[in-house]
Design a protein around this nucleic acid. Structure first.
Lengths: 181, 181, 181, 181
DNA sequence: CATGAATGAGGGTTCATTCAT
DNA sequence: AATGAATGAACCCTCATTCAT
């Protein structure tokens, strides 16, 4: 069911009417409201699922400390998620910019970011960064930007090629390929 | 006229009806259609103006070469633009993610990005980067992400603090403050 | 079952969906349709019950003659009914004014009124009224109006205080209190 | 325009959709919302107009005192109003009993009734009534009831015949016809 | 140049009713 | 006897757009 609904990512929040979603899902319009209280509730559920899924891969042992291995694994997993469900993440990014939709997850999001940045900051502190907070923010921004660019144009954006450069530039991790050569 | 219209950035594309825009602009609904063929045309014009404005600050002498000074100035100018017209850029980002709206500027955008990346790539080649293309892409992504994060929450995102770190990390430019100390 | 259903009087006919009624009654929506053919049938049954209950108190020995004692008892009983089940009678009055709902009991009602007025007319004839029919009609109207006003605002409408005045003015019955004084 | 809309009295508030009203009025659905902010606003306007019209005939010189002539004239005018616009008053009564609709005019109504009853009470005091308040309430109830009964079945309810009896019974006014005989 | 009355398609949502289980 | 998933029509309302003035 939800699988079909996610396709609203194709056309955006507003362009996807409940009618069309229901039709695509092969159910009646009325039935949609047995599963979701409203269109907003539907979207909120989708978004929440996405955020939770992403969090699973960030600091997985939940100790507030990000090792280099965890960092690398986080980046690789995020990219894997992006590639696995492009349309979903397209919706995800899109809704962030739609005021009405963003309000729905504002709370969840506002609580999350500082924690996220905090852990990253400690990572950079541990790597003797001169400006750990700034680096953390830039890392976040870069990840947002990569995701954004990738979902905008998946076929042309060479997301996999970027990993090594990211690891080196943002994580101080020399990637394996380079070590081999 | 357009000045008033840009305020549709406040509420997003769909939440801003022509009626409300016209009211805010102090003109009649009908008159809007003397100036703009349609709502989409209006939005296209707004977006085009934004893209052009941004381009003005990128490679200003149009020689296809980005000097360090031009690079620094570009970044500072972009941030200045963001700060000057937050709402506008919020709309700008938002529309990028709204498929229907993005189609309107897709052509313009698709032509632009390779040129943009090309110039950046040459910049990184000139700085002996190991992966100039990747660095160019990451720079673009980071700039997108910073803009995105800033317009999402202007009061909390310390965009000015980031400049020095960006210059150092992405442009190989040691910033002035450090030199002074 | 019906007891719970009557509470649809709270919100009116249209505002009370079968879903809500079923929920209030603690049964499933589907089961409702084992007991009542339709929502209208349910309402019809409720209304019929109300009319019958009222009739029980009017001309109880069914001889077509209303004695003064029967008249007084009728009035007192009606008021007692009103007070016992305000919500029910609110529904009752409300449905009378809703064309769609009224059609359901129109037959029952249309047959009833002339008989009712007939008996009242004979009461006024027996009391040497100059216009027995008119007095009968006015009595009916006044009773409707009192009920109407009472259920509209039970806490403020002093229905009990009215009884003596009604008895005197409409039934030529000197009330007890006066006799005592 | 409104003339056509009043015909929603035919079917009641809920059974009259904006679509049907618009169709009956010969305009588009959308246009309805140029004239009335919402369905409720439409109904409120209709009801307010009705209440105001009725008040015009009650205590016309606004001195808080009801002379016998004013009283008689009031009754005759009310009946005239009823007869002139049966459907309108049918709506009027109907909406009073529909909780959702009544809320719309509750304020207006709640303020009105005590003033109304007050003036009537003084009328009865001036006529040496034993229970002026009760008589005032009964008069109000009777008028409500007569209106109610008349609009329910205009062709059968002999509203004109009732006037003389009302004047005599409720206003202590011997009517002319009787004096002549 | 400028207005705003008018349209009609489409939006989200509710609800009486049915029916497989 | 009892459930609740499923339907589809109808509801109120919004909106981009047109056009007579």
């Amino acid at each position: 069911m939800e699988a079909a609904l996610e396709l609203l990512a194709n056309d955006g929040y507003y362009a996807s009417s409940i009618s069309k979603i229901a039709e695509k899902a092969g159910v009646s319009k009325g039935l949609m409201y047995n599963y979701f209280e409203s269109k907003d509730a539907l979207v909120l559920e989708l978004l929440s699922k996405g955020i939770d899924e992403m969090l699973e891969y960030f600091d997985p042992n939940n100790d507030g400390i990000l090792t280099e291995a965890e960092m690398e694994s986080f980046i690789r997993n995020i990219f894997m998620l992006l590639k696995k469900d492009i349309k979903y993440w397209k919706l995800y990014y899109a809704l962030f910019l739609q005021p009405q939709a963003f309000k729905l997850i504002q709370d969840k999001y506002t609580n999350l970011v500082p924690a996220f940045i905090g852990i990253l900051t400690r990572y950079y502190e541990a790597h003797n960064s001169k400006d750990p907070v700034n680096e953390a923010l830039l890392f976040g921004a870069m990840m947002d930007g990569v995701g954004f660019n990738y979902v905008m144009n998946p076929s042309l954006y060479p997301i996999d090629n970027l990993i090594d450069t990211i690891l080196e530039k943002f994580c101080y991790i020399k990637n394996n390929k380079n070590e081999k050569t």
